[in-house]
Structures are given as C-alpha cells and as structure tokens.
Design a binder for these strands. Structure first.
Lengths: 219, 219
DNA sequence: TGGCAATTCAAATCGTCGCTTGAAACATAA
DNA sequence: TTATGTTTCAAGCGACGATTTGAATTGCCA
C-alpha cells in the first residue's frame, strides 16, 4: 500500500504536490478538486478515491508539504547545539524565513490562510505539528532572556519575532498583487532582510532584558 | 440620495455594517449574501439593488469600516505634532494595534484575509487608502533613523513593526480557534503587549541606527 | 388624493462544484 | 488464460449561492 513504485502511490503523491501548491495559492474554498486533478494529471474522481474527500486531501497535503520543507530546511538553521542561545535563535529565524520565502514552499502559506480563515479542521491538528517548534523557540528565548523572565514576556518576544517572519509571507503575496513595488523577496534583499530581522530582534531582546532588571516582568 | 434620513439610506448602512462584520469574520468567498441580508434585516435582493453585486458591496463595506475606525482611533494616536519622532512613532503603533484589536474593528481583519487571499479587486484600491498611512510611517521612521538611512532600511523597519502589529490579528484569530491558550487580547495584556512592541521596536531601531554608522546602508 | 418613482419582497433561474456511480482499463497471481 | 482486486475514467446528481425578475409596497410631490 505504501509501496512508492506502484502507480497508485504515484498518483497519490502527484495529487499531494498539486494540492499543496493550489491550496497555498488559492486557499481551501477557492481551490477546486477539478483544478487539482487536472494539474496532477489525474481524473476528477481520483481525490475521492485516494483521500475520501476534499478536507482530507487538504490535511494530508499540508502535512506532506510541512515535512518536505522541514527536511529541506532543518529548524535549527544548521547552527550547532553548542552555539550560544542568540546564535541558535538566529539560526531558527533564518530557517523559518527561508521556509516561508522559498518558491516551492507551501505549508506556511497554507497556515497563513488557515489562520486568517480557519477551516476548523486544521486548527487543532496544526497545533500538534507546530507547537513543538513553538516550544523550542520559547525555550531558546528563555535562555536568551535569562531565567527570571516570565511567561508573558516570552510570548511577547515570540510574537514579535514570528510577526516579522510572517510578514515575509505578506510581502510575497503583495509582490504578486502589485509587481511594481520595491520588494524584499528577491534573494539579495531577502538575505538582507533576514539579517535585519535577526539584528532588530536581538536588539529588542537585549533592551527588554536590561529593562527587566529594574521593572516588572519577574518570574 | 445620500440623505441619511431616508429609509433607503438606512438599509444601505445596515448592509454596510453587517457586510463588514461578516466579511471580516468569514472572508469574501465564504460570506453569503443571504447571511448578510439576514443580519441587516434586509431582503435578499437588497444587496443587488443598493450595490449592484457582491464585489461592490465588499469594497464599500471595507471603505466604510476603514473610515469609521480611523475616525474612532486617529492615526497619530493622539500624540501632538511637536513630540519627538520616537514618541510619534509610538503613538502610531498604539493606534494601529488598537484598531486591529478592537472588538468591532473589521477593516484590518478584512485586509489580512485579502492579503492572504487577494480578490484582485481590493488589492489596488486598498493601496490608494493605505499607502498614505504607510508613507507617513516611513517619514517618521526616516526621522527616527536619521537622514542617512537608505530606502531599504526604512522598508525593513516598517516591515518589522507592521509584522508585529499584524500578529495581533493572528492572535485574535487563534483565540477563537483554541480558547485555552494564554492570550494577548484581553485588555490588560493588550496594553502590555503594545508597550512591548513599542519598546522592542525602538530598541531595534536604535541598534540599527548605531550600527548604521559603521556599516553599509548609507543613503 | 392620485400618480410616479424608489424601495422591498418572494420566487425563480442559472452556474458552479463536491461527490457518486457504474463501467472500463489495468495489474497480479493461479 | 482466466479470475480477482485495484485504479482510472466520463457522465451525472444534488446542493448551494449569486443574481434576476416582476409584482407589491412605500414614500414623495403636485
């Protein structure tokens, strides 16, 4: 059944690839089974045969894309475990932005749409796959900020960083909508912007760290 | 025709209010004219009569919501013109986050969905209304960073700040999807988070400012 | 009050899309 | 080769939702 050589499995992965691309492009509702099948060179009934229904295909397509991308861009950004917390944080930011900006990366685009417009099917299941990543980031932030940073502060910093990362997605979308703008996505700028986010974030973290000594936000 | 007393105009604004709420909640595609009319206590044909079609209603509803919200929360955040650039920047950030987080604010939610999923009708028209806001922010950033900051750098900082602001929207959505999380939207935390974003961002800006002296990024 | 335009209404039309169906094509093994 | 299970196919069903329509109602002015 999971034999990758069989024709069935090939159609299946063709469907997954096409589906993740199209769902990322058009969102769940505006994607039609017909178009997915067409791009996957499969018959219109193939989705129902292989996945049962559109929702299940959606879910499987996201999972497929996510694990593909994560194996292509490891979450630690290639920074060794022994490096300083700040360096490791920088690595993670780099990895996330790469995954978001990559041409053939779809999982973040899907999440983005999914958050903006929950399908109620992903929402809890996404959490199962994404929360681990999130937790690792929080641990890292905890190391950066020192052990007397409280929970809220960690969440705030996490939000600041992820907010910046997700913004790349917005720029990516806007690029499509209005091609005349000065944009970030072209690779030379993307590299620059990534460095900017890292620098900006580390500065923010350090500032909060020093202010923490004199203010509220103790653990 | 634009007489606000006439019954027609009342139905019209009832439609606009209901539409902006529902579009913000469900996005364009998943909102049905039927539901909008129901909530606006209007007949199913009212949309077509008053606006022609769904797209036009969408557009008008966004404009309505946007100007409503902007008049409720002025863009400068109430900070006087004479204040320092950093204070004025803080004011703008405050204003944006308020508008994003407010219970009955819909324009940002709609933009958010629109960016994630362009309808191709808003995309250019949004730009006409939003670009002014954006430009003012860039000017402010230019003042903060000093006159030898180059264009790209301004865009990067703008992206960092707006990314954080928009993240509030994501948190707002996630709150609906999974109510058990520690969240930011409850008003005491929102205030905290707003201050965090301001502090974080100003620290980032200052760090970049000092680094600018020794590095690239000259004007 | 009577007439005219503006507005509201219920019902019908029409297109799109997810999903089903039953038959055809294919592969595999006895 | 034949039999059996798997995969693909084209056509059709049924629901939903935007839009239209033409009649009923309302507001307005002479």
């Amino acid at each position: 059944m999971t034999d990758l050589k069989t024709k069935s499995a090939l159609t299946r992965t063709r469907l997954l690839k096409a589906a993740s691309r199209i769902f990322a492009q058009n969102g769940y509702q505006e994607s039609t089974i017909a178009e997915i099948c067409e791009q996957a060179k499969a018959n219109i009934a193939a989705v129902n045969y292989h996945f049962g229904d559109k929702q299940t295909l959606y879910l499987e397509a996201w999972r497929y894309a996510f694990s593909e991308e994560l194996s292509r861009y490891p979450a630690d950004g290639g920074v060794p475990r022994q490096a300083s917390p700040e360096q490791r944080l920088a690595g993670r930011i780099r990895s996330i932005i790469r995954r978001i900006a990559a041409e053939d990366s779809y999982s973040f685009a899907i999440i983005h749409k999914e958050i903006a417009q929950p399908t109620l099917l992903l929402s809890d299941i996404l959490e199962k796959e994404i929360n681990p990543q999130r937790q690792e980031m929080l641990v890292l932030l905890h190391e950066c900020l020192g052990h007397n940073a409280n929970e809220h502060l960690l969440h705030y910093c996490h939000a600041s960083i992820m907010g910046q990362c997700f913004h790349v997605l917005r720029l990516k979308q806007l690029q499509i909508a209005q091609p005349n703008r000065t944009l970030v996505i072209e690779s030379q700028y993307l590299e620059d912007f990534t460095n900017h986010v890292i620098e900006f974030s580390l500065a923010g973290i350090r500032a909060i760290q020093t202010q923490m000594l004199s203010q509220r936000y103790r653990a």
